[in-house]
Amino acid sequence: REVQLTEDAVRRYLARKPMTTKDLLKKFPARRTALSSEQTVNALAQILKRLNPERKVIGDKMHFFLKE
C-alpha cells in the first residue's frame, strides 16, 4: 500500500502524540512513498517548518507535537 507524505498526514500524527524525527520518518518509509531518502528528508523538513510544531524533550530526545 502506498503512503502519501503530506502536510495533513504529518499534522495528524503530531496531533495524536509527540514524535521524534525518527518516529516521523518511520511513518513514511521510502518503499511506501516512492520517494528517495533525500526527497523524504527534504519534504519532511519543509512540512515541519510550515507546521512549526511545539517541541519538548522527553527522555533526552526532542519531540514535536501539535496542540489542536
Binding site: T20, T21, L25, V41, N42, L48, K49
Partner: peptide, 20 residues
C-alpha cells in the same frame, strides 16, 4: 536498516537546525 534511519533522522535534524 536502522543505520539508514539514523542517517535520515540526522539529516532531517540538520535541515531543521536553524529553525529549531
Amino acid at each position: 536498516s536502522s543505520s539508514e534511519a539514523d542517517e535520515m533522522a540526522a539529516a532531517l535534524e540538520a535541515e531543521l537546525n536553524d529553525f529549531m
